[in-house]
Design a protein around this nucleic acid. Structure first.
Lengths: 185, 185
DNA sequence: GATTATACTGACACTTTGTCAGTACTGCTG
DNA sequence: CAGCAGTACTGACAAAGTGTCAGTATAATC
């Protein structure tokens, strides 16, 4: 249904109209619409984490692995974009869902941050605030994926991959540039 | 009010309770809550555009100007974070507001894209898809600003500046890295 | 001081939500 | 097969919020 209509039009009434069951039957399975969305998030996270494995477990060429991970994540979103969009757009509307979303993103932040720390130790990534950069890059990914694949017409997966890869690679794997380090105020 | 409660708790009823006026009086000025938010967006855009001027009009050191623009935008969000957050979170809930938000972001995308094209012509920025990169960087900024300054406790403006500046600079102003150009599939 | 526009209100109809008592159907057990 | 759970489901209700409208104050203008 999410392919057809935005989440804002999905009342319990309209959802149950499509099922042949009565509206109260909905409450047999979910406590409200946000709770339903919360379950969708749990399912989607499994798929995304699986798709993202390459970079997190890479031992050789971690740039190629990063590209592979991004490609996988994008593929999942090409398939489930509207679900991802519905989740991210619903999150601010419900306290519980907001917490679940924050936890979901927090796990990505931690995983990316750990990976960066690991590669920094190995000398593959230079000195940078891996924790803060992780949060930013993950938010970049989330908002890009939602915007590009959350509705039809979807964006071009290859183009999105190119863009995200560019930003990730440059951010993580390039030398510090002159005049950057130590700037403040 | 947005400092205290998230947008989801802001019904017309609760808004008007704070004013001493009756609920229908609200409709004297706005057609609904989303319309109110739409007006907030218009006001905020003016402030943000002003704050962002340095980079868009820079003639000398455009990296320093970029830093200045980011600092300005962050300063505006430190002051108006919850408003910005309310707007971005409400956008998916209303067709009109969604369009207004898309137009708002679209103007940033166009401005950044133009600036990149300009600096590419001047040889300051290398070959990259300025249009796609602009969209991504702007979404990065928006989601970061909302997350960091949209509620209390707010993030540290300096840290956020450092992170965003790092990503923007590396993305736009570093040399192409080996193995990046021409990768596809 | 009369007139006209503006600001505002009480009350109504409508929509959606969550709940609950109660019905129908299922499978199990003696 | 009768009786008894346990599950799946429903109709009806109360509560909360929305948008509208006829109508009343209040202020501004001539």
């Amino acid at each position: 249904m999410l392919w057809e209509r935005p989440i804002r039009d999905l009342s319990i009434t309209s959802i149950m109209n499509g099922t042949g069951l009565s509206r109260p039957a909905f409450y047999q399975y979910f406590s409200n619409v946000h709770n339903l969305v919360e379950q969708l998030l749990a399912d989607l996270e499994v798929e995304l984490v699986t798709a993202a494995m390459p970079w997190f477990t890479a031992s050789g060429d971690s740039r190629a692995a990063l590209r592979e991970s991004l490609r996988g994540i994008i593929a999942v979103c090409v398939e489930n974009g509207p679900v991802f969009r519905a989740i991210s757009e619903s999150a601010p509307l419900d306290a519980r869902l907001e917490i679940a979303w924050a936890a979901f993103m927090g796990r990505w932040d931690a995983a990316v941050s750990d990976r960066i720390a690991l590669e920094q130790k190995a000398g593959m990534i230079g000195p940078l605030d891996g924790s803060a950069i992780s949060v930013a890059l993950n938010r970049l990914d989330a908002s890009t994926l939602v915007a590009e694949f959350g509705r039809r017409p979807q964006g071009d997966p290859k183009a999105v991959l190119g863009t995200l890869y560019h930003i990730w690679i440059k951010t993580l794997y390039t030398e510090p540039i002159a005049g950057f380090e130590g700037l403040d105020s």
